[in-house]
Write a protein that binds this DNA or RNA. Structure first.
Length: 571
RNA sequence: CGGGGCGUAGCUUAGCCUGGUAGAGCGCUACGUUCGGGACGUAGAGGUCGUGAGUUCGAAUCUCACCGCCCCGACCA
């Protein structure tokens, strides 16, 4: 491609709406433009990136035996009413009516439509397994779209759905998709980790998220330094301490802490470690008030709380409920002196193993120190894992210690089971002649999100640094003085033609711009390889090659230039 | 939806407090000089000051409503 014939839309300054590096750079490099909140137009340079990502996905999906389809993004309400999701999905789903007042939605996902296809077209176990996928625009009316394409409302997603005769087959399909995903993200040149995800109410089945590691990620991932274990922090189990609770060593005392209603404040006031304090959080579930107690330096895991017996559907308690149950105000709460007929005490596993701790006295401006379970107050009613893991916690698989990094979820594989096939009556005829519901799996990749995530992970102060596999152009040929020097022009054109002939995506900057402009654009756009052709070098018979990550250019004989570039390309 | 902020040329913005009819940088067009890291000069195009109402002799500026966008939070197969 000649730059003069292309649509370069680079910007020197980023529009103020952009916060994250990837968002700013996508705007500046002319990959996307915003149309409205969470809505983006993909410009030609962006499309080239998108197409490269899609190509890798298609190749690996096909290799794994999946077959491509295309379903309408506009789907009739009736299908969604069959599974009950028309009402369950809520305001996230964009709903529209046609001229006859029939209701439709703009698809946020496509389980219903694909299950409808399966129930109509797949009749015999002989036809199974089948895995169908599409790359299609989705719409989810996010409460707060942000971070450019990382959390847009309209986005491109690859969604695949597998249909198997039984659970073992389904798990095999799941494994194939898992492997395909590993191949896809590896080929795209991303640093990522598959992590165990919440299986939710479906239960029993497997689920993994594929997380691209990046500082700005919205998800927290815990991983072991000694094994393959990796899980979303929402999900990662905090094991009970291996050591027994020590015997009480000091007497309980009540001391004033005027105006200090936080663990941090008390620890500072008394010059004690934060880890010796307890934090009590009050919440209400099923009409009963519960006091959840975690260590002062830990954070509550709200997902885990919802799974504790009796706490499903919990909410934060009101001030009145707190006062009624504890006789003291928030900020000064603790397990001592409670009327257990009014309140249930749930202690985190770590807390249950502590002795001589500090907690609120259930009285404004007072805390207790030297408190011990059993001696100063009854044992907790319930001990559960209710906190987020922290770095240094033991890995739940028993091997190594956990570290925590941030990630951007770019893929999700899910063993669905019969949830949709049963509610929609999607069955096949089994070997024994009976009708059985399909065992399904679903597998998503956020195609547009992959692009943003790749930039979050690969950029510097000058711009994007694309992995070869998704660069809009792999090589830039930049002539110095194209219209001044015949030698420069001939060499540049020859190199351009040769690279093009070798099947390399090359951008030839024939714009007659000043050198600084051309080089800055190449770096901003993130074209990973460049050849600079200048009179200076040609006098010695060389051109300059430089990878976007190389600190300096290397001189290469003109005749060897293309071979040199190709030797540096990642397959 | 709650809290906060912002809407002035394609982009970044000054002017607003203290009302007097809009200015800069980048970008764009033309010409000239330049030409190995975002050049310089000259000339030029480009603005419903988000929309509407109000106050006023007069509103980008003050008031109100609405719309849009951004940030924090809640929310999120």
């Amino acid at each position: 491609m000649r730059a003069s014939q292309f649509f370069l839309a680079t910007l020197k300054e980023a529009p103020q709406e952009a916060e994250l590096p990837s968002h700013k750079l996508m705007l500046r490099a002319g990959l996307i433009r915003k149309l409205g909140s969470g809505l983006y137009t993909w410009l030609p340079a962006g499309m080239r990136v998108l197409h490269k990502v899609e190509r890798v996905i298609r190749e690996e999906m096909d290799r794994a035996g999946a077959l491509e389809v295309s379903m309408p993004p506009v789907q009739p309400a009736e299908l969604w009413q069959e599974t009950g999701r028309w009402d369950l999905y809520g305001p996230m789903m964009l709903r529209v009516k046609d001229r006859a007042e029939r209701e439709y939605c703009y698809a946020p996902t496509a389980e219903e439509v694909i299950t409808d296809i399966a129930r109509k077209e797949l009749r015999s176990y002989r036809q199974l397994p089948v895995n169908l996928y599409q790359i299609q625009t989705k719409f989810r009316d996010e409460i707060r779209p942000r971070f450019g394409v990382l959390r847009a409302r309209e986005f491109s997603m690859k969604d695949a759905y597998s249909f198997d005769a039984d659970e073992n087959g389904m798990l095999e399909s799941y494994r194939k998709m898992f492997d395909a995903y590993v191949r896809i993200f590896t080929r795209l040149g991303l640093k990522f980790r598959p992590v165990v995800a919440d299986t939710g109410e479906i239960g029993g089945s497997a689920s993994h998220e594929f997380q691209v590691l990046a500082e700005s990620g919205e998800d927290l991932i815990a991983y072991s330094d000694a094994s393959d274990y990796a899980a979303n922090v929402e999900q990662a189990e905090a094991l009970a301490p291996s050591t027994r609770r020590p015997a009480p060593a000091r007497a309980m005392s009540k001391d004033p802490t005027p105006g200090v209603g936080t663990c941090e404040g008390v620890a500072k006031l008394w010059s004690i470690p934060l880890a010796t304090t307890l934090k009590a959080l009050l919440l209400t579930a099923n009409g009963r008030v519960h006091m959840l107690i975690i260590r002062g330096d830990h954070n509550l895991n709200e997902v885990k709380v919802g799974k504790v017996h009796g706490l499903r559907g919990w909410r934060w308690s009101t001030d009145e409920e707190i006062l009624h149950a504890c006789n003291g105000p928030a900020g000064y709460l603790g397990p001592v002196g409670l009327d257990r007929s009014r309140i249930t005490v749930v202690a985190d596993r770590t807390v249950a193993a502590m002795a001589d701790f500090v907690c609120g006295a259930n009285e404004k401006d007072f805390h207790l120190r030297g408190v011990n379970w059993g001696r100063d107050c009854p044992e907790p009613d319930l001990v559960a894992d209710i906190r987020n893991v922290v770095p240094g916690d033991p890995s739940p698989d028993g091997r190594g210690l956990l570290s925590i990094v941030r990630g951007i979820e770019v893929g999700h594989v899910f063993a669905l089971g019969r949830k949709y096939s049963e509610s929609m009556g999607a069955t096949y005829t089994a070997e024994d002649g009976t009708a059985k519901p399909f065992e399904m799996g679903c597998y998503g990749i956020g195609v547009t999100r992959v692009v943003g995530a790749a930039i979050e992970q690969n950029h510097d102060e000058r711009g994007i640094i694309w992995p070869d596999a998704m660069a809009p152009f792999t090589v830039a040929v930049i002539p110095m003085g194209l219209h001044k020097s015949e030698a420069v022009r001939e060499t540049a054109i020859a190199l351009y033609e040769e690279l093009k002939g070798a099947g390399v995506d090359v951008l030839f900057d024939d714009r007659n711009e000043r050198p600084g402009v051309m080089l800055a654009d190449q770096e901003l756009i993130g074209i990973p390889h460049r050849l600079v052709v200048g009179e200076r070098g040609l006098k010695e018979g060389v051109v300059e090659y430089q990878h976007r990550r190389d600190p300096e250019a290397t001189k290469v004989q003109v005749a060897q230039a293309v071979a040199h570039v190709r030797s540096r390309l990642k397959p």
